[in-house]
Every structure is written in C-alpha cells, then in structure tokens.
Simulated assay, not measured.
Amino acid sequence: MKKQTALMLMALGVLVAGHAMAGTDTTFGTVVTTLDNWMTGSMGKVFAIGSLGVGLAIGVVQQSIMSVVTGVAIALAGSIGPGVLAGIFTAVL
C-alpha cells in the first residue's frame, strides 16, 4: 500500500512540475523591473559607495582589512547580483 501511495505522489509531482517553468509568470513583472533598475542604476551605486565607505570607516577604527572586504563584497553583490538572478530565472534547458 505504501508503494502505491508513493508512486501516486511521484506521478502527481511530475505532472505539477511539468507546468512550472522559471520566468514565465509576469504577475510581478513591473516590480521586478523597477527593483532591477534601482539596483543596477544610481541607487545601486549609492548602496555600493555607502557600503564601501562604511567598510573603510570600520576598518580604520578596528585596524582590520576585513570590514573593507565585506563592504566590497556587498557592493559587488548589489551590482552584479540582479543580473545573475535574472540569468538564473530566464535560463532554458
């Protein structure tokens, strides 16, 4: 009985997964476009420069380079991250 239930659930999962495709839903398309434009535009540059500045300031106070590295990592993630995520969601196998 357990095997039959497991097979039924797997079959149902395959049927449901067949309808799920990354990047086909446009319900929040305007929100995604707006946030992408913000992060890759002037607002993203403000965050990048701000995080680098804060990292530099903390690095000077603590006399450690790790805060600067963290600031640079945040800046890179903010500027490159949206493009990477867009590539992941629009990828076609």
Rank of each mutant, 00 (worst) to 15 (best):
N37P: 00
I49C: 05
F47W: 13
G13H: 02
V46W: 12
A20R: 10
I49K: 09
A48Q: 01
A48F: 02
T34W: 11
F47D: 04
G13W: 01
T30C: 06
S42R: 13
V32A: 10
L15A: 13
G13E: 03
A17S: 11
T33H: 12
W38P: 01
L15D: 04
G13C: 04
V14S: 09
F47M: 14
D36N: 15
W38F: 14
V14C: 11
G13L: 05
V14P: 00
V31F: 12
G41M: 02
G41K: 00
G29E: 05
A48C: 07
A22N: 12
V16R: 07
T24N: 07
L35P: 01
A20V: 14
G44C: 01
H19C: 14
T33E: 13
T40R: 03
W38V: 05
L15V: 11
M21H: 15
V14A: 11
N37C: 04
V14T: 08
I49F: 10
G18T: 08
D36P: 01
F28V: 11
T34Y: 14
M39F: 06
T30R: 10
V16I: 11
V32I: 14
T33R: 09
T40W: 00
L15W: 03
T30K: 11
T40L: 03
V16Y: 14
F47S: 08
G13A: 08
W38N: 07
I49G: 06
D25R: 09
D25K: 06
I49E: 09
M39P: 00
G18W: 04
G29H: 03
F28D: 10
V46R: 05
M43T: 13
N37W: 07
G29F: 03
T24F: 06
T40H: 00
L15E: 05
W38Y: 14
M43G: 09
T27D: 08
T40E: 02
G13R: 03
V14L: 13
L15R: 07
M21R: 15
V46A: 13
G29R: 06
T24D: 07
I49R: 04
A20C: 14
V32L: 12
I49T: 12
F47P: 00
V31D: 06
V14R: 05
D25F: 08
G23R: 04
M39K: 00
G44I: 01
V32C: 04
G29P: 00
L35M: 10
T26Q: 12
M21V: 15
A48G: 03
T24Y: 04
M39N: 00
